[in-house]
């Protein structure tokens, strides 16, 4: 499921023919202020080789127009709604207000209200082993038509929980907003590979007293996987994450109540196992 679908408005800071360029300082201030509010900003100079094609929706063009009057602009294809505003004499705060006002009630994702937290797969490392599909209780992962693991429901992911990256044996799962490497996308070292590697049978992991069972597994596996990271860590991560989510109020009570019961977990584990097996062609 993708719920945060309200794309940012694209603002064009126009400094081409018919407009006066802002000072570098003002330009940087205005752009930073707009970007920090979630807008996308194009700086268009007389040398327009850097501008990207516009898309099929709205553009707001701002400029210090020479006659202090914004031109009437129209998209020749009729697909793009273009509005222009003159910003002569306006400071940064006024310009941001003008943009907000022009956007009106059109919804837009905004920083501070929500954090884009979801896994990103490094396909140059991923071996399609499906461990992540089996591990995630929130159906973030899915399988493409051609049997490839995908992030399909990124908004199901629990903010600040990077637990699935811990179970990836190839350190192929990244969380861009995580603070430390290699989970944040930093280069993977040999030491990271040893630390992060862990293979977990989700069925036995999550059935019944999961933590006791995991501890047992951990002890049993210690000698076999001496170079691998302790399996306790991923589960500890999940436990910690859920506790923190509840404690910090990230998820309301009804969501907490909707967390899988042991039976549901077993069912999900079986489903995930079947999907993974089907994707891998295992019968």
């Amino acid at each position: 499921m993708i719920t945060h679908i309200h794309r940012p408005l694209r603002v064009v800071l126009y400094e081409g023919k018919g407009a006066i360029a802002l000072s570098a300082e003002s330009r940087a201030q205005v752009m930073a202020a707009l970007l920090d509010k979630g807008y996308a900003v194009t700086r268009a100079t007389a040398n327009d080789s850097g501008a990207m094609p516009h898309d099929d929706r709205s553009l707001l063009v701002l400029g210090l127009f020479t006659d202090q009057k914004a031109p009437a602009l129209e998209d020749s294809s009729g697909k793009v709604n273009i509005e222009a505003r003159d910003i002569t004499g306006l400071g940064t705060v006024d310009i941001v207000s003008l943009v907000d006002k022009t956007r009106g009630t059109t919804l837009m994702n905004e920083p501070g209200v929500w954090k884009p937290w979801f896994p990103v797969i490094d396909y140059s490392r991923c071996t399609n082993c499906m461990q992540c599909l089996s591990f995630c209780l929130f159906d973030v992962y899915g399988v493409s038509g051609d049997g490839k693991i995908q992030v399909q429901n990124n908004d199901n992911c629990k903010t600040n929980c990077p637990a699935c990256s811990r179970v990836c044996p190839e350190v192929a799962i990244m969380f861009p907003k995580y603070s430390a490497g290699p989970i944040n996308g930093d280069v993977v070292s040999e030491a990271d590979l040893g630390r992060e590697k862990m293979k977990v049978d989700i069925t036995s992991l999550l059935g019944g007293d999961i933590y006791a069972r995991l501890r047992d597994r951990s002890l049993a596996a210690k000698s076999r996987f001496s170079k691998e990271r302790s399996p306790d860590k991923a589960l500890e991560e999940r436990k910690k994450c859920l506790a923190k989510l509840a404690q910090d109020g990230f998820i309301p009570a009804e969501v907490l109540e909707a967390l899988p019961s042991p039976d549901e977990v077993m069912r999900k584990a079986e489903q995930a196992k079947a999907r993974a097996a089907a994707a891998l062609g295992v019968h």
């Binding site: 945060h4 940012p8 752009m31 970007l35 920090d36 509010k37 979630g38 807008y39 996308a40 900003v41 194009t42 700086r43 268009a44 100079t45 040398n47 327009d48 080789s49 850097g50 501008a51 990207m52 994702n109 920083p111 884009p116 979801f118 861009p176 907003k177």
Partner: peptide
């Protein structure tokens, strides 16, 4: 230079 800027590629 002309350039594009976005609030957040992750978003």
């Amino acid at each position: 230079a002309s350039f594009e800027s976005v609030a957040d590629l992750c978003e």
